[in-house]
Write a protein that binds this DNA or RNA. Structure first.
Lengths: 134, 134
DNA sequence: TTTAAATGATACCATAACAGTATCATTTGT
DNA sequence: ACAAATGATACTGTTATGGTATCATTTAAA
């Protein structure tokens, strides 16, 4: 049971790295040297981020990626949405439909509270924030 | 991303049902009629609970299952442990080893806070409690 | 203008978890 | 003897996760 999957995690690391070098174009090869992430996997991740408008890319020799916007405007939740879909700890199996079971539903209320708390904790997190800490 | 998997959920429902009929032996067939759960799946779940010492079973005609202890002593976490293993939202990929990435680790601290909160919310939940509500 | 370094686009793959199903053996009340 | 129940165990289909592999295209620089 993971709140953050590996691709989201790798994305965070890569973006933090790039945030420290704003406006500098960084290649995957470069990134891989610092972060210990498998090349082709990181490449796929960055391409996805590019398609999502979080990164900008530049092809050809000397090319690579850079942040498409200030690191303070890149939210952890953006990444979660891209790689993991909507953040939901619940996923009631009877969504929309009338929930047939009152007992489980009372449990669900508790899960909802937990989810709200988790969201409140993670919502404000941006790449800039993560870079700043320490 | 689910905090509670389907088998845990089904287990909760079945146990709540049985809690209302304490010391009465209930067969899978009976349970299936009330709760809308696939027979063979529920059967497997109850057998697992039996092996875990949460249920007692009685074979043969008129047999079935009943709670092995008072419903107030059966914790949601017992079930989670049986069906989902340890409750962890974190699963740092570099457990034990020195975490090589400070940035991600600062994120991890936030995840730990969330996990602690979730545990604090779920820890006190027993079957008795769930039955009592409403 | 060739070459090499980069991304773009896609397809593929292995493993595990999840959500069950199926079957045969054994027990037991009637 | 029979039928209703669990015990034990193996199997199956689908999806998510965590990647690899390949070929095409762009582009800076020799």
């Amino acid at each position: 049971m993971k709140l953050i999957t590996r691709d989201t995690d790798y994305a965070v690391r890569a973006l933090c790295y790039m945030a420290k070098r704003r406006d500098e174009v960084v290649s995957v090869t470069q990134l891989v040297k610092s972060l210990k992430i498998p090349q082709p996997f990181l490449r796929k991740i960055l391409q996805t981020l590019n398609q999502a408008g979080i990164l900008e890319s530049q092809k050809g020799v000397g090319g690579g990626f850079k942040l498409a916007r200030p690191s303070g405007d890149i939210y952890l939740f953006d990444l979660i949405r891209v790689f993991q879909g909507d953040f939901e700890l619940n996923e009631c199996m009877f969504k929309k439909k009338l929930c047939p079971n009152r007992t489980t539903c009372s449990l669900r209320e508790r899960l909802e509270v937990i989810e709200k708390y988790a969201v409140s904790q993670l919502e404000p997190v941006t790449i800039a924030e993560l870079v700043k800490e320490r």
